[in-house]
Nucleic acid binder design. Structure first.
Length: 640
RNA sequence: GCCACUGUAGCUCAGUGGUAGAGCACUCGAUUCGUAAUCGAGCGGUCGUCGGUUCAAUCCCGACCAGUGGCUCCA
């Protein structure tokens, strides 16, 4: 056998006989590395340790430290889960079992759904499977052999049938369990040590609601105990921050069965909503035209926009008494109404870009099972904007928008990452148009200097787009803003502008949202800040507390002074003890408590207690306190 | 929409085949207090809705409504 050359991560080259396994290479490098080895990276591809090496390659041993190793661990964990389920439920059919972010799942076809007790038993059995330390054995099989091995697993047979003719079919065995799988896997089941099953839920076979429902088990797996604990801690933290829980506790919004998917905003929630809206209005004071358009339309509009054909399921249709038919609908999007308004006038190139912004209420008929708190609702408002412009204006406009959006997020301490989605297979317009549109978007992206992820083929059928993902304070990602180029709508709505040449031309449209929707953005803010909003956003910015009735009047005057300065201040002069009222303020996450005792009443000062800072009080004149708050509010300071 | 689970006072939750409790909140009284719960009394629920089984249903069964976790979809 001829030797092959392996280039190691440190640049050194090692010659080994062809057919040597990665495990053997690891051993030859060092016993410690061999013990730590989980898999190998061969020319960038992750492989099982025991696969023989066949040609020259860049080579690295994968240990726990490698981020890609987690995927291998979790994929193997899924197999171990299936091994356990098959032992406890021998007739269970097996679907797919991939690694996912933070864990893994496996889908089973069983007679009855899994109960929490089942999960406990399965988890216990998984521990036995890892205890036995079965090696994961990879085999390449031909199609007839694969069909024979899985003759009792219809789901696997279906998968095999879908494999292309040149695809290598591999099966993996760990102890009693055999699975069709591309791999790679851990060397043996004993390498999985820290895992936990989390939940069971129904899931359609292949995500298709017309197919049978399988039972999915979710789990998580980590290399180190502390990581598993940190992860379960993170789940608990997320639960504590859940906007549905905090929304109730902080009295921000409520839901009622009579209006599923539509929030009732309390005074405090409305304050939050309006503060955000005010901020957006202020940012869009120049260069934008805020407009309001009807909420209810004849189907004629939806026929032009294409919604009647493609989006009807998601629209709330309204019965028209005159025609006796459901030929009207509440608007699910603002775009068509904006296009109508644009089309009603004649526009010169000198007016462009025309930026229509709106906060109108939208309705989308989401299926009942999809509704969830404020993040998934049927009634909401977007901070929507449609920009009508000439193609030549796209680069500059996109650059402005990107800066605008990123600056907006920064106000909340949110960092965004960008995604650039290009032409999909199904699209309108010629390649020249797409070339120009994508180049313009890309140039704008490059100009930000920020890294972005390329999503080829993920654009809308009418144009490419930039999406903005935001990570909150506990690392969860949310897709928020979007900038989409649209070449189709101007055609459909027959929109023009008069050019320098005195002829009519088609404008291009940019769809832009920053918040996504106020509802969802507020949910994210609640969770991001864990309900402790920065001063400028807080529904109640200050609570004034007299120490006893003797200072009630002085405290009322302080409260009046603050309110006159435009600060959202309240007075809590109840008959409860001071301790009680302070506790109440802390639980209510009020940024500042201003305490007025005899000394303060006489000196015209307040003792300030900052949220979360304990009793490290500062005593300052009321005027100074007012000035300080006013400045912090104007600056939209993040602290406190 | 589909699968599973859940629904008891404003909130968090206990409980039983013989028509219900706790803590907090609220109301009233006393307390006037210097930085995270003062004491006492009281008010408050046709046990999600409708139907069935039963001498008797909040409890068992069914349907519906809503919520939760997923699937799907998306802002």
């Amino acid at each position: 056998m001829s030797p092959i050359r392996l280039t190691l991560p440190d640049g050194s080259v090692r010659e080994v006989p062809e057919g040597t396994t990665s495990r053997q290479v690891a051993q030859s490098i060092g016993a410690g590395l061999a013990r730590a080895a989980l898999a190998a990276r061969v020319d960038g591809q992750i492989r099982d340790l025991d696969r023989p090496l066949t040609q020259d390659a860049r080579f690295a041993i994968l240990t726990e430290k490698d981020p890609d190793a987690l995927e291998v661990l979790r994929h193997s964990a899924a197999h171990i889960l299936a091994t356990a389920v098959r032992e406890l439920f021998p007739t269970a059919g097996i679907g797919f079992g991939p690694p996912i972010e933070d864990g893994f799942y496996y889908d089973f076809e069983v007679e009855r759904p899994f109960t929490p007790e089942d999960l406990e038993a399965i988890e216990k059995r998984m521990a036995e499977v890892t205890g036995k330390d079965y090696p994961f054995i990879r085999e390449v099989v031909d199609r007839p052999e694969a069909n024979r091995r899985f003759k009792d697993d219809p789901l696997k047979l279906e998968r095999i049938a879908d494999l292309g003719p040149d695809e290598t079919i591999t099966v993996y065995t760990d102890g009693p369990f055999v699975d069709l799988c591309r791999g790679p896997h851990l060397p043996s089941t004993g390498r999985l040590k820290h895992f936990k099953l989390l939940s069971a839920a129904g899931a359609y076979w292949r995500g298709d609601s017309r197919r049978q429902m399988l039972q999915r088990i979710y789990g998580t797996a980590w290399f180190r105990k502390e990581e598993l604990e940190a992860y379960t801690h993170r789940l608990e933290e997320a639960k504590k921050r859940d906007h549905r829980k905090l929304g109730k506790e902080l009295d921000l919004f409520l839901f009622h069965p009579f209006a599923p998917g539509a929030a009732f905003w309390t005074e405090r929630g409305t304050s939050l909503y309006n503060t955000l809206n005010q901020f957006m209005r202020e940012l869009q004071r120049d260069g934008y035209q805020e407009i309001r358009t009807p909420l209810l339309y004849n189907k004629g509009l939806w026929e032009i926009s294409g919604h009647w054909g493609k989006y009807k399921e998601n629209m709330f249709l309204v019965h028209n008494n005159e025609t006796g038919e459901q030929d009207m609908s509440l608007k699910p999007m603002n775009c068509p109404s904006h296009h109508i308004l644009y089309g009603l006038g004649k526009h010169s190139y000198k007016e462009l870009p025309i930026r229509y912004s709106t906060y109108d209420v939208l309705h989308r008929n989401e299926v009942s099972g999809a509704l969830s708190g404020l993040t998934r609702v049927r009634q909401f408002s977007q901070d929507d904007c449609h920009i009508y412009l000439m193609e030549s204006q796209i680069p500059e406009e996109v650059r402005r928008l990107t800066e605008f959006i990123l600056g907006y997020y920064r106000t909340f301490g949110l960092e965004a990452t960008l995604k650039f989605a290009t032409r999909p297979e199904q699209r309108i317009g010629d390649d020249g148009m797409w070339d120009r549109a994508e180049a313009a978007l890309r140039a704008a992206l490059e100009a930000t200097g920020l890294p972005y992820e390329l999503k080829p083929g993920d654009g809308a059928f009418y144009g490419p787009k930039i999406d903005f993902d935001v990570a909150d304070s506990i690392g969860r990602k949310w897709q928020l803003g979007t900038i989409q180029l649209d070449y189709a709508a101007p055609e459909r709505f027959d929109l023009h502008y008069v050019g320098e040449d005195n002829h009519e031309h088609r404008p291009v449209i940019i769809h832009r949202a920053v918040n996504g929707s106020f509802e969802r953005f507020i949910a994210i803010l609640i969770e991001h800040f864990a309900g402790a909003f920065p001063l400028w956003l807080s529904p109640e910015q200050v609570r004034v507390l007299p120490i006893s009735d003797q200072q009630a009047e002085a405290a009322a005057r302080v409260n009046e002074t603050l309110r006159t300065a435009g600060i959202r201040s309240t007075l809590d002069a109840g008959s409860q003890t001071l301790n009680y009222r302070i506790r109440d303020g802390e639980i209510g996450k009020v940024p500042y408590m201003a305490i007025v005792g005899q000394r303060e009443a006489e000196a015209g000062t307040v003792a300030i207690r900052v949220r979360g800072a304990g009793n490290k009080q500062e005593i300052i004149p009321v005027a100074e306190f007012t000035a300080r708050l006013t400045a912090a509010i104007a600056a939209r300071s993040l602290t406190p």
